[in-house]
């Protein structure tokens, strides 16, 4: 017989015993020791059938294959760009993955992406020792012009996006801003005016602070309604 020793949605810390007996199975953020399921990190308990999971409340970004991230170019070499994606080591984007354009022999690579440029890129591979390859080939992957980049906790990214992107499209609707959310917690916002961008930033800040509550969409909608009763028309994007 197994017993659940904590309530669902309660906050646990490393070492807390979540359940005993073999009826419960440890999922992410938990592990088994003898017949006990134990929390491995600070988080909120979630129950899915027999699975006990700890949703982390703190943590860093760990790059995963096929994540779309916003990175900053930190260095350019003969055949690579080095891109900071918010992990300890820089990601490498090779010449052939950098662009679909034809690049002539001996061309100046910084004319494509220079140091300090922000790009939206996809992580094409992560090795076991965490060497990260980036690719710019794919829909929506490009260099970012104008706008601004803010950083939030990467764990809150799913809440900012919402189910099927509902949350982020609502913010886009209300502010008229273009928003790209990277899985690494960087968000690019580009709007008609600094006020629009500020409103979008505030809304995202609100989501980050209240990420754990349910019915968040309503809270954000209320906030946006109070600040911006009339929705602006969407603007044409500043593309290259």
């Amino acid at each position: 017989m197994g017993n659940l020793l904590v309530e669902e949605k309660s906050i646990v810390v490393p070492g807390d015993v979540l359940a005993d007996g073999m009826d419960y199975l440890p999922a992410g953020g938990a592990f088994r020791e003898n017949d006990k399921v134990i929390s491995a990190q600070v988080g909120v308990v979630e129950l899915n059938g027999r699975l006990v999971k700890v949703m982390p409340l703190a943590g860093t970004y760990v790059p995963k294959r096929d994540d779309v991230v916003i990175g900053r170019v930190t260095d350019v070499s003969y055949s690579n760009w080095f891109v900071d994606v918010g992990y300890a080591v820089d990601a490498v984007m090779s010449l052939k993955d950098g662009t679909t354009d034809f690049i002539e022999r001996g061309a100046e690579l910084s004319e494509y992406y220079g140091i300090g440029d922000f790009v939206v890129a996809r992580i094409s591979n992560v090795t076991k020792s965490k060497m990260i390859d980036l690719s710019m080939k794919g829909p929506g992957l490009r260099k970012l012009l104008g706008g601004k980049v803010i950083t939030i906790c990467p764990l809150k990214v799913p809440r900012v996006i919402g189910k099927q992107g509902t949350m982020v499209s609502m913010i886009k609707d209300y502010t008229g801003c273009h928003i790209i959310v990277g899985q690494n917690g960087r968000i690019w916002i580009s709007g008609n005016s600094p006020e629009d961008e500020r409103l979008a930033t505030e809304a995202i800040g609100l989501i980050e602070r209240k990420a754990h509550i349910s019915g968040l969409t309503e809270v954000v909608k209320e906030f946006l309604d109070s600040k911006r009763p009339v929705k602006p028309a969407a603007v044409a994007e500043n593309t290259q």
Binding site: P14, I38, Q41, V42, L57, A58
Partner: peptide, 11 residues
Amino acid sequence: LADAGFKMKDL
């Protein structure tokens, strides 16, 4: 370390 979100067996 727990506050930073690292995985730990215990405090």
